[in-house]
Simulated scan of single mutants.
Amino acid sequence: MDLLSFVVALVAVLIGAAGQRMIGMGWGLVVTPAVALVAGPLAAVLVVNLYGAIACLVILPRVWHDIDWRRLLWLLVPAVALMIPGLLLAKALDTDLLRVVVGVIAVAGVLVTMLITRSARRVDGPGVRIAAGSAIGVLNASVGMGAPIVGLYSLVSHWHDRTFVATMQPFWALVSGIIVAVRPFVAPEGAPDWPLWAWLVVAVPVVAGVLLGDRLAHLVNREVVRWAIIGLSIAGGIALIVTGGIALVS
């Protein structure tokens, strides 16, 4: 295991966990490109979902009373239904091609989000929620990048209040937990070749990031945090596109 790459992954986990607590997103946007770059896209799916579920479970007691259970079910059911196809897609694609796909999704998701932010029109309803949940299920299971779809849905539906932050915690805990549980039976390949101590160490920035985000949630400007996460997502996505593209043409 390359130590420098592992440190990069730890920093990404810390930032992603803090962002997840502060604004309800940021985990997948930051951690997936970083881990995919240093350990491979298949490894990123496992790492992002495993520790993402842990991060959300740590956050959950703090936001329990603000959860929108009705909207949670609208997103969760189609997300769970499309997980198996997503895992099979990841298993079928070439590793370097998958790396490029993750990068493109990261960058495109951010750019579309920025464009939609300018629109004042609210778009929501059962169809939109089912479509969003389905896309999240496929993308999170295949490339660990369901987060951009969550961002898009929150923007088009104008769902920006504290219930969004709260509802995303049980949503990601369940989605990620189920993916981790079924992955060994559908796509067991691609787990990071880390020693036991490394798996335990990664849990430290997860908890530290949540605690840091909890302390800063009421102090920092949410838009500043959002734009910081957007910048990191674009940088990580471009890095994945470049490395995957070079490997494909070489």
Rank of each mutant, 00 (worst) to 15 (best):
D193G: 04
A135L: 07
V31K: 11
G125L: 14
V35M: 10
M168W: 13
P33G: 00
A141F: 03
A131Y: 15
M145F: 08
Q169T: 10
A228M: 06
L57R: 14
G24Y: 04
P33Q: 02
L82A: 07
L212E: 14
A9K: 08
N49G: 02
I241Y: 01
L219K: 09
L155R: 05
G244M: 01
I234E: 01
A191E: 12
L248W: 05
A81H: 08
L57W: 07
R21S: 13
P33C: 00
V202I: 15
V77M: 08
T167C: 08
I105E: 01
G52E: 09
A90S: 14
L46K: 13
V182L: 09
M25T: 02
V207P: 01
I116Y: 07
L216E: 06
H158S: 09
L75Y: 14
V180M: 15
G137R: 13
S5A: 15
G190H: 13
H160Y: 03
L115W: 06
V182T: 02
L115E: 06
V156R: 14
A18N: 12
M22A: 07
I54S: 13
G16E: 00
V35A: 15
N140S: 09
A18M: 04
H65G: 10
M145Q: 14
R129T: 03
A166L: 08
G151N: 09
I234K: 05
A203S: 14
L219E: 04
D96Q: 07
W172I: 04
V202Y: 09
V30C: 12
L111V: 04
I136F: 07
V128K: 03
V242E: 00
E223S: 14
A203C: 15
G237V: 01
D124L: 05
I84D: 13
V104P: 11
L88A: 04
V143M: 03
V225N: 11
G190I: 05
P195T: 11
V80E: 04
A120F: 11
A135S: 10
G86H: 03
A17Q: 01
A181Q: 11
